[in-house]
Design a protein around this nucleic acid. Structure first.
Lengths: 225, 225
DNA sequence: AGTAAGTGACAATGAGTAATGTCAAATTAC
DNA sequence: GTAATTTGACATTACTCATTGTCACTTACT
């Protein structure tokens, strides 16, 4: 109140050769990576702000500079991991042969491979995401909804997944996504006992089966009932 | 040390017309019901020992008489709800016509109907169970494993679910269970938007599709590859 | 009626930790 | 070189909540 800083606002000086924005976003990124490590290793519940700071090699002050609380960081971590996985899956699909089954196989392979190689990611995406808060539930819902929608389009185009008697395409897609997620959860939680290929083929079998079933129903003209 | 009670041990007197065992197990049951209510309404994280006692209309002393901590109570609540659901599903299956599809439909109907009528149960069985602790994870794993095994037998008998090329029957069963659970989660978390029958039929369709697929593969002699 | 066991309400303790504050050292800009 | 900014280590505060303890009151048994 007495000493109004003449240099207008603390407008952000360079430090260590970096601008304020650079430093800030670097610290932010450090916390996101730390979150991936800590949430993936210890789980959300056991993660404290201190442990996140320790992992990021930064102090609490900088934590609160970028995140209101650890839940906000978790949301950011989740979004980051989903994005990475999506990019990887899309890349694999683009590189796969132009065959419906091969495309699906390629996508599933990347998915399960990621779950295998990055158990922390698996834990965050498949397990920790649940039951944290209403906001996080919403994030999960939106993410899965989004993914289901994409899958529905893909399946519609690739497999011609249609609606049978009394069923709903969105629910079917949800079920297929759920089967994959659950197989991954199960695989993860049991220490990756089964061979990757078997897991991929088994998961794929459900998609193939559902696609055939739908196709038959369409050919049989059952779709109108 | 000085006043050793002459009446041997505090062997448990009658009180209110009930024996010690009766009173204890009644209180225990009160806490389990309170747990169902509180965990189902507020979630595990938000549930405090105090809130559980308030709901049970008992004091902390009696909480610790039966449970070491709220996690132990949660495990008990979970087991109780699984047991109830299992009993209901079995009863419905027994009452259903002796037709594979009708049997599956009856079981799924009870499952989804329960999730619909008892949102608290749905929340506990489908959402809260995840990420509480290693012990609870283990409980979930064992329970689902058990259920998957049962389902596998049922499917083997009812639908003749076999193994195709490179797939594994257990993983397929896991996937089917996962599809059902996920559809239920989705339905729950979205406020039960879809009609019960559509949900049941859509979920069922995955089982039917998978069963047909397996059967074809067996007929085609693909099981040997 | 009297004594001991059982009960219920609530206080006390203590641990954990989120969030904010302090201060000296490092770095930059003029 | 000097003052202001930035940083890092750490202290402080404040709060929630699990767990144990206290005490007056109730019930059962003799």
């Amino acid at each position: 109140m007495t000493t109004q800083p003449s240099s207008s606002r603390s407008s952000g000086r360079a430090y260590g050769g970096r601008s304020l924005d650079e430093r800030r976003s670097k610290r932010r990124a450090q916390f996101v990576e730390a979150g991936i490590a800590v949430f993936g290793r210890d789980g959300f519940r056991a993660a404290t702000v201190k442990s996140l700071c320790r992992e990021a090699a930064l102090t609490e002050r900088y934590f609160y500079e970028s995140f209101a609380n650890s839940e906000v960081l978790f949301a950011e971590v989740y979004k980051t991991l989903v994005k990475r996985l999506e990019d990887d899956v899309v890349a694999a699909i683009d590189a796969a042969p132009l065959d419906p089954e091969a495309t699906a196989r390629a996508g599933l392979h990347v998915f399960f491979d990621t779950m295998y190689r990055q158990p922390g990611t698996a834990r965050i995406l498949l397990i920790e995401i649940f039951g944290i808060s209403g906001d996080i539930d919403r994030l999960y819902r939106e993410t899965t909804q989004n993914f289901t929608r994409t899958l529905q389009e893909l399946l519609g185009a690739i497999f011609a997944l249609g609606e049978g008697s009394g069923t709903d395409a969105r629910i079917l897609s949800t079920g297929l996504v759920g089967s994959t997620i659950h197989i991954a959860m199960y695989w993860t939680i049991n220490g990756y006992r089964d061979a990757l290929d078997v897991v991929v083929e088994s998961s794929l079998a459900l998609y193939v089966a559902m696609a055939r079933q739908s196709q038959e129903q369409i050919l049989d003209g059952e779709g109108e009932v």
